[in-house]
Amino acid sequence: MFEQQLINGLTLGMIYALIAVGYTMVYGVIQLINFAHGEIFMLAAFLAVTFITVFGLPIYIVIIMTMGCCALIGVLLDIFAYRPLRQSPRLAALITAIGMSIFLQNLAMIIWGSRPKPFVQSALPPFLRTTALTVGDASISWLQLFIFGIASLLMIILFLIINKTRVGTAMRALSQNRTSAALMGINVNRVISFTFALGSSMGAVAGIMVAIYYNTLYPTMGYVAGVKAFAAAVLGGIGSVPGAMIGGIVLGIAEALGAGYISSLYRDGIAYAVMIAVIIFRPSGILGKSTLEKV
């Protein structure tokens, strides 16, 4: 029982981590909670199903195509919704973010209907549902292994992009100080767009994984997952990418164990409670650092 919950929690946590890095990176570069990030996660699931049913493409191609589409949506979101408000008070951008989130969610509802749909199982290799290995009483399915594998791979790629490439250096510079970064000749808007693209494509993979894992997709799925992933980002320390990864995994495990041992009715509540507790007692999170406002 315990091992099984742990494995389920870990799977969930990997997915949260993938979404959480999107929140944390955008927060790092423009200090905005991109509430619409959860909607990109949801759109990914629907786009993937559409690509499969309409074009009949294999799942691996679909994942890559969806990543590309979501990256584009993320960039457009920034250009049309957030960029015009860079000089406005933060409240304005925050309200825009929440407005965009609701807008996209209802757009999906109009396009694909509000009822939950199953994922197209025929597109998946059948062995995914079978048990890969058993540890004591717990069993791990190939699907769970697949999720671990793909999430770990993406995390490593992300780590390499942030730490080893020019654009990654620019992103880190931007999160330190936007004005100085601009003075150093960094094209601020391009780096921000890149950040949105990167975060959105990570979120896209998470969206497809969740749709496959739970075999369901619906327009409001981004709303709960988005908040939980944000809680993970806060838990790890907002602005810190490794923090988001750790936060996601911790939260996923806490949720699975909490639902198993405390009360499954408050499953979603655990994420909110963890988030509120972290914000109250350790707002800088596990790996974050507190910042001082310059007077």
């Binding site: 825009t96 407005g99 965009m100 807008f103 509802m109």
Partner: peptide, 18 residues
């Protein structure tokens, strides 16, 4: 579905802020 009226509300908020 009647819930889709929130599309309009979301749009109103974005446009107002802009």
């Amino acid at each position: 579905p009647t819930e889709t009226r929130f599309l309009a509300y979301g749009l109103i908020m974005v446009l107002m802020m802009r």
